[in-house]
């Protein structure tokens, strides 16, 4: 299905496609509650003090309601975030220059996916929020009981199952081969393998959930030269893009823990993904 086809379908499903179909705003519907509340805000006449105790309840409830509305309005604006996401800067810091779990200050970072400084292939991303730390091939943010993480790698070896003890095999040499290996390694598929164009490159997309225990312990899933083994946590959700970057298969892995990763952290992870640029 093409972008244009989807666009037409989404636009056709607009519940209110034509503003003219909307009857003129009925002032009595909108203005009555509004003006009543406006009066509460702008009426600064001194209130006559009543001696009857029971007569306090009405104004007190009104004042309390006004206070609640004011606080709610204040919260709405204090939580508004208009800070634009920075474009990836040319002077990005190499993740490889940092130690594992170093704090990442807001700024641009890159992962040299093959560890070869002579090649230009890299994934550059921007961290905006606080609490992010470096890992060998990306960044993560951990909270008391959970995490979100982004990795950009050229996979070296894969295990045929995340649930069984097997010997690792060489990773596929094309994005398609690599994608097929991950689509059949025992993860519970949440979004089936599908071709995509993402981050400027063609490839494949997959979302899988790590089984809760596999009847034993979850085994490693893949390695990246020269050292790392990637172990998943049970019930971890992993979103993959397997990209063909001018002939080199590059895997982008975004992961989080459904139900325990704070929504704000998952939103930050998506914001980091928005800035990710894969340079051939």
């Amino acid at each position: 299905m093409t972008h244009d086809q989807i666009d037409r379908m989404v636009r056709r499903a607009n519940p209110l496609p034509d503003l003219n179909a909307l009857e003129p705003v009925d002032a009595s519907v909108l203005t009555t509650p509004l003006e009543r509340r406006m009066d509460m805000q702008i009426d600064d006449r001194p209130t006559e003090v009543k001696t009857d105790r029971n007569r306090w309840s009405g104004p007190l409830i009104g004042i309390a309601a006004a206070a609640v509305i004011l606080v709610a309005g204040l919260v709405l604006f204090l939580t508004r975030d208009n800070t634009p996401v920075a474009e990836p800067a040319p002077n990005a810091t190499p993740i490889s220059a940092l130690n594992f779990d170093d704090a990442l200050a807001p700024g641009a970072y890159f992962v040299d996916t093959d560890g070869d400084e002579a090649s230009s292939l890299r994934g550059t991303f921007v961290i905006e929020g606080s609490g992010w730390t470096s890992v060998d091939a990306g960044a993560r943010k951990t909270s008391a009981e959970s995490f979100v993480a982004l990795l950009v790698v050229e996979v070296d070896q894969v295990w045929s199952s995340v649930c069984e003890s097997t010997a690792p095999v060489a990773a596929g040499t094309t994005a398609a081969d690599l994608a097929n290996q991950f689509a059949s390694n025992g993860l519970t598929v949440r979004e089936a393998l599908a071709p995509v164009n993402a981050f400027g490159h063609n490839g494949y997309h997959l979302v899988g959930e790590v089984p809760a225990g596999c009847g034993g312990e979850v085994k490693p899933a893949w390695t990246r030269a020269p050292v790392d083994e990637r172990w998943y946590d049970p019930t971890e959700m992993v979103e993959y893009w397997f990209l063909d970057v001018e002939g080199t298969p590059v895997m982008i892995e975004a992961s989080w823990a459904p139900g325990t990763s704070p929504e704000e952290d998952v939103a930050e992870l998506n914001a980091v993904l928005d800035t990710l640029v894969i340079t051939p």
């Binding site: 086809q5 208009n82 996401v85 474009e87 993402a198 993904l273 928005d274």
Partner: peptide
Amino acid sequence: GMTRSAVDQRIHRSYQRLARALA
């Protein structure tokens, strides 16, 4: 509060998700 390119990416990715869901 995003860059234009981030919006482009989000629309692109969302439409791909919708394409898979609506296939």
